[in-house]
């Protein structure tokens, strides 16, 4: 499976990763429509900052993911094929238990038709996740790591 790592020494805090994440998860995947016409989806990556320090952080897709264990409904699960931790928006009721247990603060509320959370899904439709592909500074890198979701049931 793939993992994304931030390189804080190269991050300028430009937040292009956030913008492209929003576009990729919008209905049209068109930057103008996503920001001007449609319901703007929640970003799944966040530039964390303190003074001069900045880096982009998204779900770590933990091996033993606390959000999967804690999920009240079974919406949060590991995808058997990609190994990514994904949230089934149809089954999520927005109880926020995953937000309560995520050690990274990488799950967010997503205001929409019903209460639901949003988190990084590693952009399943793209070769390279949008945040990585669009970082102008290579401050986000993608790596192929061994691991699988074979016990996912």
């Amino acid at each position: 499976m793939i993992r994304i790592y931030p390189r804080e020494e190269y991050c300028t805090g430009c937040r292009l990763c956030e913008i492209h994440c929003i576009v990729e998860h919008s209905e049209s995947r068109d930057i103008i429509k996503a920001f001007k016409r449609e319901r703007r989806p929640q970003k799944r990556v966040e530039v964390e900052e303190s003074g001069h320090l900045s880096f982009a952080l998204q779900c770590r897709h933990c091996d033993e993911a606390p959000c999967v264990d804690a999920c009240l409904t079974g919406a949060m699960r590991r995808d058997a094929r990609t190994g990514a931790v994904i949230n089934d928006r149809d089954r999520c009721v927005g109880c926020w238990t995953c937000i309560l247990v995520c050690p990274y603060g990488a799950v967010r509320r997503d205001a929409g038709e019903h209460k639901v959370v949003a988190k990084c899904d590693l952009c399943p439709h793209l070769e390279v996740p949008a945040c990585v592909a669009n970082c102008p500074n290579e401050a986000l890198v993608m790596e192929e790591v061994p691991g699988d979701g074979d016990q996912a049931l």
């Binding site: 050690p103 990274y104 603060g105 509320r109």
Partner: peptide, 10 residues
């Protein structure tokens, strides 16, 4: 605003 509260939990 409960975002990131899980960091405290951890």
């Amino acid at each position: 605003d409960i975002e990131r509260a899980g960091i405290y939990t951890s």
